Amino acid sequence: MTDLSRKTALVTGSVQGIGLAIAEALAGAGARIAVHGLAGDAQINEVCTHLTQVGAPQAEFFPGDLRNPEEIGDLMRAVSYWGGADILVNNAGIQHTAPLTKMPAETWDSILAVNLSAAFHTMQAALPEMVRRGYGRVINISSVHGLVASKYKAPYVAAKHGLVGLSKVAALEHAAKGDRAKGGVTVNCICPGWTNTAIIEPQIADRLDAFDGDRDAVIADLLKEKQPSLRGSDPSEIGALALWLCSPMAHNLTGAAIPIDGGWTAQ
């Protein structure tokens, strides 16, 4: 099993969904977790308490609006003072569906800022310290939409494609850093397909009337369109892959964009 004791992980968007599942997996391996996301005090306290219960020696919340580079800088400095991120998971993301010609400009700007530019800023801050320590893991949560496109998701698809490209550049620049014994410094993307999280709720809601309010039928219809396995992923499955990528064994897996999509991108 991967031992992450004495490691610190910053997981953006870790108060729910895929981010929380990744934080749980890393906490279970002994990592200290820097929690981040949009939540009230009660939810923040619940998440931090839960992560310590599943194995984190410490879990604390760090605020920061990822649309704002200055706040990202404050976030990364606060985590640095806390000990610095050995593991950086850029998971936070937003989405809005609309035809390209009707997509609000401010929505484009917000999605690109949170889903792409924020990862640039966090990696720029975190990677030098990873290099100094000889070990570092950056895991950027992209999407199948970082590999293929879909209609009505112009900013999301653009940002996720950009995130895959950005990750490859960072991986190449850091491929020879660190050493095998410590695990080196790697940068990878995970590209989930349909996953049971809140981000797909608007698409489910859009189709409920057509299926007489039958939520399961809507989900089956969405899966049938894209995902050959006809099965959605559970966030814990994404967490398990993220944990493995943090192992020293994964020292030579860098610059990859790994789909968990039931065959979606194999078509």
Rank of each mutant, 00 (worst) to 15 (best):
F62T: 01
P63W: 04
P63I: 06
P63R: 12
P63V: 04
D65Y: 09
D65E: 14
L66W: 02
R67L: 07
R67P: 04
R67T: 15
N68S: 14
N68V: 09
E70C: 09
E70K: 15
E71Q: 15
I72D: 09
I72A: 13
G73Q: 11
D74R: 15
L75Y: 01
L75G: 10
L75M: 11
R77A: 15
V79W: 05
V79M: 00
V79S: 01
S80Q: 09
Y81L: 14
G83I: 01
G83Q: 02
G84H: 10
G84A: 12
A85T: 03
A85K: 09
A85P: 06
A85H: 10
D86Q: 14
I87L: 10
N90F: 01
N90G: 03
N90C: 08
N91K: 10
A92M: 13
A92E: 14
A92N: 15
I94F: 11
Q95R: 15
H96S: 12
H96W: 13
T97I: 12
P99M: 09
L100C: 07
L100T: 14
T101F: 03
T101S: 09
T101E: 12
K102H: 09
M103V: 06
A105F: 01
E106S: 13
D109L: 08
S110L: 06
L112K: 05
A113C: 08
A113Y: 05
V114T: 12
V114R: 10
V114S: 10
V114A: 10
N115A: 04
N115I: 03
L116V: 01
S117I: 00
A118V: 02
F120C: 10
F120H: 15
H121M: 11
H121Y: 15
H121K: 13
H121R: 14
T122C: 15
T122L: 04
M123P: 03
Q124V: 04
Q124T: 11
A125D: 12
A126P: 00
A126C: 13
A126D: 07
L127H: 04
